[in-house]
Design a protein around this nucleic acid. Structure first.
Length: 411
RNA sequence: CGGGGUGUAGUGAAUCGGUAUCACGCUUCGUUCGGGACGAAGAGACACCGGGUUCAAUUCCCGGCACCCCGACCA
């Protein structure tokens, strides 16, 4: 991609209201734009990163389930059936202008915050027997929850991207088995995103559907909303909401702030019961299906990754999710040479952001650092007279000159 | 939803009872060209909305709305 052709490029001024590093860098770097409290537009750079995050999630989920896409608009009746229409206070309810609501609490649609109310009737319609079970279904989609207080830039929003998977099982034992499979898949995802060493599987409240704990994936992060207690002896992490209150034991725990990047629950037979969804067992009897659900906030992950990987000059993207692999910088006299490099790298499948703008070197360096692609390639009179192009990693200070014919090989 | 704060050009700020200043950004011309270059000339603001006080309100007062922060909340 050529920067001279881009609609959105980094800005120099820092946003007034950015209190987290990720918010500031994502706005300055032209990754996102705030529309209103808790609602953002993803600009080209941000969209590329989001797509990469979601593709990693997708690749791992495809190993254990099937991707579908459910609607954003959900029927009110289903939510009334599960009792969540009145109960979930962050629910967004849509009242079309051409269909006046009967009273102010009524609505024509629920704007989906989660999809048990869709996926359960879906699976019931396909009438799985014990032979079809277990099954897992997931989607990656925009979700809506009217958080009373959006904050932290992209970290807590009212409209956000999320992967939600739902699993269906013949009995509790099989649900527990699959739950561990999903947990392993999550571990792989966070490792691939570069968050592996700082992400903890954390015991948390199971919510309304189970007495069991749920498991959160919490990434250690100073601007995180959750407080985690890590038992230094057992290695087990607890969310503050379920943490042992024993003050005498306090020195056994390391306390830190973290941001929730995933949450997996067992749902029991709650939704199967509500929708009267039973499968036929081998002996012909009808039994309720056991369900689990598994969420990952993909847009929040974008913010968490920036919180973790940055320096005073900008973002340092892990290569797996960087908007581009290489920032290519050229100057007035080296444009033609850079064009050749850009084309050969692109032909070799390397993603290149070529800064071919008519701007001073300082601006280009600053923008490249801010955007945070893993490699920076400079083509200048100086580099050419030294024998080639200057290659530098974003996370290292030293650079090296490499010959033109080695560029593709090195990247 | 409680408490607090802030609304002035695209962005960030200054001003102040007499219709608004600066920086960045943007446009044009020229000079520059390896760490946010320089000169010159321009364009761009109903001072969030509504009401009140006043000869006069961007400024003071009241109400609303929006955004931000602290707390509560987070299936």
């Amino acid at each position: 991609m050529r920067m001279s052709q881009l609609a959105f490029t980094p800005v120099k001024t820092t946003p007034k209201d950015a209190d987290t590093v990720s918010h500031r860098l994502l706005v300055q770097g032209a990754f996102v734009d705030q529309v209103m409290a808790g609602v953002y537009t993803f600009l080209p750079f941000g969209l590329r990163v989001l797509a990469k995050i979601e593709n990693i999630v997708r690749e791992e989920m495809d190993k254990i389930g099937n991707e579908i896409l459910m609607p954003t608009l959900e029927p009110v009746e289903n939510w009334k059936l599960t009792g969540r229409f009145e109960k979930v206070d962050v629910l967004m309810k849509a009242v079309p202008a051409n269909q006046a609501a009967k009273d102010k609490h009524d609505a024509e649609y629920v704007i989906g915050p989660t999809h048990e109310e869709i996926v359960t009737p879906l699976v019931k319609k396909f009438n799985f027997s014990y032979k079809n079970l277990p099954r897992a279904i997931y989607q990656i989609q925009t979700k809506f929850r009217n958080e009373p207080r959006a904050k932290g830039g992209i970290m807590r929003t009212r409209e956000f991207r999320m992967k939600d998977m739902y699993s269906f099982h013949t009995d509790e034992a099989d649900l527990k088995r699959f739950y561990e499979v999903a947990k392993d898949a999550y571990v792989t995802i966070y490792r691939r995103l570069g968050l592996g060493s700082d992400t903890y599987i954390t015991l948390a409240s199971g919510g309304d559907f189970t007495k069991d704990y749920s498991h959160e994936f919490q990434t250690k992060c100073g601007s995180g909303e959750d407080t985690i207690y890590l038992n230094k002896e057992t290695g087990i992490a607890y969310n503050k909401e379920v943490a042992p209150a024993d003050a005498g034991e306090k020195d056994k725990y390391e306390e830190f702030k973290a941001s929730e990047v995933g949450n997996i629950f067992t749902l029991g037979t709650k939704f199967a019961d509500d929708f009267d969804y039973k499968y036929t067992d081998a002996d012909g009897t009808l039994r309720p299906v056991w369900m689990g659900c598994y969420g990952i906030g993909t847009s929040r992950l974008l913010g968490v990754i920036v919180e973790k990987f940055n320096d005073e000059r900008g973002i340092i993207w892990p290569e797996a999710v960087a908007p581009f692999k290489v920032s290519l910088i050229s100057f007035e006299t080296t444009g033609e040479k850079a064009k050749d490099i850009y084309e050969s790298l692109t032909a070799a499948g390397v993603e290149v952001l070529w800064d071919d703008r008519d701007l001073s070197a300082g601006v280009k360096f600053a923008d490249a650092d801010l955007i945070g692609n893993p490699y920076r390639l400079i083509v200048s009179e100086k580099s050419l007279s030294s024998g080639g192009v200057e290659l530098k990693r974003r996370d290292e200070e030293k650079s090296e000159i490499i010959p033109l014919d080695e560029i593709v090989k090195r990247l």
